[in-house]
Design a binder for these strands. Sequence first.
DNA 1: CTGTTAACTGGTCGGCCGGTCAATTGACTG
DNA 2: CAGTCAATTGACCGGCCGACCAGTTAACAG
Lengths: 199, 199
Amino acid sequence: MNEPTTRDPELTRARILQAAFDLFVEKGFAAVTMRELAEGSGVTKSLIHHHFGTKDGLWDAVKELAFARYYQDQKEDLEQADGADSDLLSKSVVRYFRFLAENPKVVRLFSWAHLEGDSSCSHMDAELVGLGAERVRQAQQAGQLRDDVNPTHVVTTFVNACTQWFATCEHHADWPGMGNNEQYLEDFLKIFMRGLQPD
Amino acid sequence: MNEPTTRDPELTRARILQAAFDLFVEKGFAAVTMRELAEGSGVTKSLIHHHFGTKDGLWDAVKELAFARYYQDQKEDLEQADGADSDLLSKSVVRYFRFLAENPKVVRLFSWAHLEGDSSCSHMDAELVGLGAERVRQAQQAGQLRDDVNPTHVVTTFVNACTQWFATCEHHADWPGMGNNEQYLEDFLKIFMRGLQPD
DNA sequence: CTGTTAACTGGTCGGCCGGTCAATTGACTG
DNA sequence: CAGTCAATTGACCGGCCGACCAGTTAACAG
């Protein structure tokens, strides 16, 4: 557990992963070169190949790490939520919205991976949405939410509304009439929560 | 107005644009090579350079064409809508949803362009959202919609919910509990429209 | 029929791409 | 201390990248 000063493969891997994350998030996989990655992480091109094999290998490692963190974070939130809370849904929306607000790079990474047809994130999302839908179903049975809508669609609706907001965030930031993050969240919640009230 | 058999620069341009559109939509700008573009459109690489200058030039032309069609289509719909119709909003949602369903490639093109920081689509969307927001404002003043929410946020909410649905369409198509396009649209409209009813 | 223009082609260029490899260096083992 | 192994380096490779250019050919105006 000592700390070698000159050589530290784990730290090196971490530095490469961080630089690759930033570059891939910014420009997408295809537009980034191994030379940029090397320069960005302060190591040689060969060293990246030594640790990650190919450019694709590095890309996979970057995605796997980011997605694992995302998945862990979200699952934790979903499981620690109090099932008896009548305001569970709006709190979940807020929590998800805040997560995206604090992790804009993850949003972009998802977008890139998704456009390239990556399926690994799909399985994750399927499970998370499934967990959320189960909560909605419980709330419906408890009479807290209208029960004539598909619980999965309820979750998908707010996930879509939040995700796309941050995916296009920097564009519409200065549109006339468009509010900031908090104002949008507030209005969305107004609409969404009233739309889900029981008859 | 005759039809030359051997040489037709406009047809050539159109063929190149179509092939480029398909390839760029599928793989993104950076991952497509001039050679692929040439093969895909059945012409020589040099001819593409002759007509569009550089690869970037072709990319710009592809985007401009697709965006212009999108813009024209949307603006037409927005303007021909009957202002006195109390069900205007839900019809607009349905119309937009159907447009995306029928033009999945445009959705992907927007996603790519957007991730790359293209700002031209931003101005378009700003104007379209502005037009829609104006309609919402009118409906609010007529007492047809609740007036304690920002009209721009109303439009953004449904645009986000629809866009992101199709952006992730092929992924969640087979998720457990997830319905098809029509079922999602129906549930979203239930939530959205009730959420917007006046007090 | 002739001259001009532009569509179109094949060949080629310098440069950068991802990837490899032999050699060096540092850390740890016994 | 020698010996081992992995971390790290720099030089190098074949190939493909986007772009260019000289030459050819079809359309068209006069």
